[in-house]
Structure formats: C-alpha cells, structure tokens
C-alpha cells in the first residue's frame, strides 16, 4: 500500500514538469496567445530577478559562513544541550537542528555524516532525515524571496520563520519517538 503510494507520488513528480511545459503553451496556443513572443517577454525578467537577489544573498551567506567558521555553533550546542536532553532530543542531533534554518548545505553535510555513522535506519538516522525533510532553510528563503522584490524591512518574517522551524523540529522529534522510538 505504502509502496504503491510512493510509486504514484514519484511518477507524478517526474511527469509534472514536462506536462506543465507542454500543457501551458498548448492552452495558450489554443487561446490564440502568441506563445513564443509572450514567452520571450516573460523570460526577459529572469536575468534581472537573479541579479537583484545577489546583494541580499551575499549579506546573509557571508554572515552565516563567518558564524560557522568561528566555531560558535559548537559552544552554543554545549550551552543548550542540558535543556534539549530533558525533552529527549539526542545530543548528536542538536547541531543539525540548529543549523537547519541557517544553511541547507551545512545541514545536509551534518545529517549525511549522522546517517553514515549511526546507520540510516537507526533512531538518530531517521530523526535526522525527518528534520531535514521537515523545513526549509529559513534565512536562504528569506534572502532569495525578499531579495527578488528588494524588500529590506522584513517585519515579523524572521520570528515567524524561526518559530515554524522550531515547531517542525519538535514535531519531527515527537513523531519519530512515536513511530520509531
């Protein structure tokens, strides 16, 4: 049952893009849209959007890279691990959880290492996998999405994103304890 579900989902995700790339121009063509001209018109913006993001992303990634290089993360981990022990979050997971909102590639690195050391089907391996799959890299999304429209004053986006990340990690811990614990 679960296997067939997964197979169906996989097929959908493999077909989705090719189908959209044909379907949308087809509907446009039938509705007498000048598909080629309109495509080019829209695509022109792609360059500008990508360029607009650069300063925002440089600012964020530079600060995060410095933070990671300084070793501050390790100190932070030892500082709050007594608290996370109380709720049953394995100490090994903590760096991955803290890295999640900051850096996607950083988290993937930590998690790959955890999976390889503890085994993919161990509790830690499954929890780490779940945490990676449960939220996005908040600061990256923030820089790219707001950067593309030149938004500098982000108001409550940072706290909302971080609280959601925290909720995602707590939910991951809860469901993994429930299902695999």
């Amino acid at each position: 049952m679960a296997e067939t579900m997964i197979q169906i989902l996989k097929t959908i995700s493999e077909w989705a893009i090719p189908v959209l790339l044909v379907l949308i121009p087809t509907v446009g063509f039938l509705k007498k849209v000048k598909v080629y001209e309109v495509f080019v018109e829209g695509a022109k913006e792609g360059f500008n959007v990508a360029i607009r993001i650069i300063p925002f992303l440089v600012a964020i990634l530079m600060a995060i890279a410095m933070f990671r290089a300084s070793g501050a993360m390790d100190i932070f981990v030892s500082f709050i691990s007594p608290v996370t022990d109380l709720i049953g979050l394995p100490a090994e997971i903590l760096p991955a959880a803290l890295m999640r909102p900051l850096s996607g590639s950083g988290t993937l690195g930590i998690i790959t290492e955890l999976i390889n050391t503890h085994g993919p089907d161990s509790f830690i391996g499954k929890l780490a996998s779940t945490i990676y799959g449960s939220t996005e890299t908040t600061f990256y999304v923030l820089a790219v999405y707001f950067g593309s429209v030149a938004i500098k004053k982000t108001r409550h986006a940072v706290p909302a994103g971080l609280i959601a990340d925290f909720a995602g990690i707590m939910a991951a811990l809860f469901i993994c304890q429930f299902m695999f614990g």
């Binding site: 121009p25 446009g28 309109v38 829209g42 792609g46």
Partner: peptide
Amino acid sequence: WLGIMKIA
C-alpha cells in the same frame, strides 16, 4: 519559468 508563467 517566468516565460512559461507569462504564457499561463
């Protein structure tokens, strides 16, 4: 995607 979205 911006090209496709413009058609859409």
